[in-house]
Design a protein around this nucleic acid. Structure first.
Length: 355
RNA sequence: GCAGGGUUAGUGAAGCGGUCAAACACGGCAGACUGUAAAUCUGCUGGCUUAUGCCUUCGUAGGUUCGAAUCCUACACCCUGCA
């Protein structure tokens, strides 16, 4: 399933075989929460070097529903995507939608912000949905908490629940895949939690690694803690990975500085909304992990491309900062599209340079 | 010509004696964003300067008043009726 091709210190490059194709790591996977990477066609996404796109259980369950997507041929066909797709479990929504959700041992109840309907998600339900969606890689349903002052009080509770839910997720996964040939099974990732508590993190990692999951996901980071705290934890975890050939997936991290740090501390996969969200909001990365605001007045008559060292479609085709700034100012969606292509490519080049 | 209505900061538009440098919206400027309730959100937006401070502003010029964007007079321009 996962082969390490070469190593340099803690960093490594590898080859992950999924039922939808091979993925070279380290890799950055943009989020296409509702099935599409916002403002991009699959061709545009492909042009940036992206191998995997992530979609979300929670959102697709609400609309249009997993049964509909199954009828439409599964997420890959649905999204008209050739490469592998990964679905997130909806666990993150437990955290990000905390205001409208209620957690019990059985699962989580959400109030659909659109319709007001009650939505129930549990480990079993999440896995069932992900299997129906037909994702090539899936994630166990976990309990995520914030790392701000309030959230930290819940660390232990979330840590414990995550493992109970992992066992339930895994049992449901095994039940639903028992008749599938090994090669046809999607890869399931177990999630490590434990907040900023190193003892809990270590224990969590040990628990996840002891189970027959196909990959190790690190969750509960980049949720309110400082960069130093996050890096410190990644550094700590890097001392405790076992030798089993499984990919390590750092959930929700996409700042180039953090991706570099992650790769150099043994992480193989990343997903994040940052490149696309920032892009739609006018911020792009340039050489040196610097960021600039394309909407700034100083670019009004700038004829240069975003980054002369970049080989993305936007830069290669010669779109000037002056042009893109104008499109942003007049609210033309093309601006966000061009910037998204650039930002994703920035992270893909970063990953390629390590590979 | 007569009778009404109007003229407020970059734009639109509140305010109709003090708590008004003047609501709000848009525009402008800057920033935030990390498993997407996010093409979103936040701050600033007369000048000086950053203070419970001063100065200059509400068509123009006068006046009433302790005090006027708010009341009165004249003028200018715009709109609506009647000629």
């Amino acid at each position: 399933m996962f082969k390490v091709l070469s190593e340099d210190g803690l960093a490594r490059s590898g080859e992950l075989t999924t039922r939808a194709g091979i993925v070279l790591t380290p890799t950055f996977m943009p989020d296409g929460t509702r099935g599409a990477v916002k403002s991009l066609t699959p061709e545009m996404v492909y042009s940036t070097g992206v191998q995997v796109v992530l979609a979300n259980t929670y959102h697709l369950h609400l609309q249009p529903g997993e049964d509909t997507i199954a009828k439409l041929g599964g997420v890959n066909k649905f999204a008209n995507r050739k490469g592998p797709m990964l679905t997130d479990s909806g666990g993150f929504q437990v955290f990000s939608l905390a205001k409208i959700s209620k957690i019990t041992e059985e699962g989580v109840k959400f109030k659909d912000p659109k319709t007001g309907d009650m939505i129930f998600l549990s480990p079993e339900k999440s896995i069932q949905i992900q299997m129906k969606l037909g994702a090539d890689m899936i994630v166990a349903f976990d309990d995520v908490t914030a790392l701000d002052k309030k959230g930290r009080d819940r660390t232990l509770e979330a840590f414990e629940r995550t493992h109970r839910w992992l066992e339930r997720s895994l049992a449901e996964y095994q039940r639903l895949t028992k008749d599938m040939p090994e090669k046809e099974k999607p890869i399931i990732f177990g999630v490590v939690q434990g907040g900023l508590n190193k003892e809990l993190r270590k224990k969590s990692l040990e628990i996840v690694q002891s189970l027959p999951v196909g990959g190790i996901a690190i969750g509960g980071l980049s949720v309110g803690e400082t960069k130093e705290e996050m890096h410190d934890m990644l550094n700590f975890l890097s001392e405790h990975y076992d030798k089993s050939p499984r990919p390590r997936f750092l959930l929700g991290v996409g700042d180039p500085v953090d991706v570099r740090y992650g790769i150099e501390h043994g992480i193989d996969m990343f997903d994040c909304v940052l490149p696309t969200r920032n892009a739609r909001h006018g911020t792009v990365w340039i050489e040196g992990d610097e960021k600039i605001h394309l909407t700034n007045e100083r670019f009004i008559q700038d004829t240069s491309t975003i980054d002369e060292n970049c080989d993305c479609y936007t830069c290669l085709e010669g779109f000037s900062k002056g042009f893109i700034r104008h499109q942003f100012k007049v609210g033309e969606p093309l601006a966000g599209t061009l910037a998204s292509i650039h930002n994703i490519r920035y992270l893909e080049r970063l990953c390629e340079s390590y590979r």
